[in-house]
């Protein structure tokens, strides 16, 4: 098996987390998330993470969920 490399993920923030988004983003970086975008109006952080780090992201206070990014969009 080859190393699949980092996973591109969507991290959804809960309502409490949206109220302290800068701190939460710092927590996400601390557990290994490489942040691409912080979408404050809709409460989503996009980025990439090693597969082993997914559980750590999910455990961050204020994280509602984590989902793999789809890149197969079209018409």
């Amino acid at each position: 098996m080859t190393d699949p490399g980092p996973l591109r993920v969507l991290v959804t923030v809960d309502d409490d987390g949206m109220g302290r988004l800068p701190d939460l983003v710092a927590d996400l970086r601390a557990v290994g998330l490489s942040v691409d975008a912080v979408l404050e109006h809709v409460g989503v952080v996009t980025g990439s993470i090693d597969p082993a780090g997914v559980a750590g992201v999910r455990a961050v206070l204020g994280v509602e969920g984590i989902e793999l990014e789809r890149s197969d969009w079209g018409f």
Binding site: R8, L10, D36, A37, L39, E40, H41, V42, V44, T46, E69, R70, S71, D72, W73, G74
Partner: peptide, 11 residues
């Protein structure tokens, strides 16, 4: 495209 770009557009 991918989710990230679409979500950025929605935001």
């Amino acid at each position: 495209g991918s989710d990230g770009g679409i979500l950025s557009g929605i935001a």
